[in-house]
């Protein structure tokens, strides 16, 4: 190991900064909220304020993945007052959770979407979907799965 006078004079300073930053790391993680000693349900269970809230999307996709046929077209969206809206985060996440399906944007399950363009399944996060062409298949606390009639 190299050693020199400069290092000897800076050691207390270095230890001070290391200690202060270690405390900062602990406080930052504490402020993300509990539970602190339980296994997280998903990789996104402690989002920062203002970040996307994806935990329900991940859990729901993991639930439906075995129910969906290979190659089926599916979208994933959080409906607002029963209607799909243009959003990107949920269907982008679903694209990684449903590798054997064709995951499409929510526009493929809109009220104005021509029937021949509609996707086969809709994963509705939390709130129900109110669409005459989609029938409820299954329901969980995190949301619902609908199939096109």
């Amino acid at each position: 190991m190299r050693s020199d006078p400069g290092e000897r004079t800076s050691r207390p300073l270095l230890y001070f900064f290391i200690a202060a930053l270690t405390i900062a790391v602990c406080v930052i993680q504490y402020l993300r909220g509990g539970p602190y000693f339980a296994r997280a349900a998903t990789v996104f269970s402690h989002p920062r304020k203002g970040q996307i809230d994806a935990a329900d999307t991940i859990v729901l996709c993991q639930r439906v993945v075995k129910m969906l046929p290979r190659g089926a077209s599916v979208t994933c969206v959080r409906p607002v007052e029963g209607v799909t809206r243009s959003e990107y985060s949920n269907f982008l996440i679903a694209a990684g959770m449903l590798p054997r399906q064709n995951v499409v944007p929510p526009e493929y399950a809109g009220l104005m979407t021509p029937p021949e363009q509609m996707c086969d399944y809709v994963i509705a996060i939390r709130d129900p979907l109110d669409h005459p062409r989609y029938k409820l298949v299954a329901e969980w606390p995190e949301g619902r799965l609908y199939h096109r009639q």
């Binding site: 993680q29 993300r32 339980a38 997280a40 994806a54 985060s89 982008l92 694209a95 990684g96």
Partner: peptide
């Protein structure tokens, strides 16, 4: 140790992982 704890309890996850880095890898 603190950082691995943070990762294991999902306190450090970046949104980009589930939005595109992860989905790209899976696809």
């Amino acid at each position: 140790v603190i950082m691995i704890y943070g990762a294991a309890t999902a306190r450090l996850t970046c949104g980009d992982l589930i939005l595109f880095w992860g989905p790209k890898a899976v696809r």
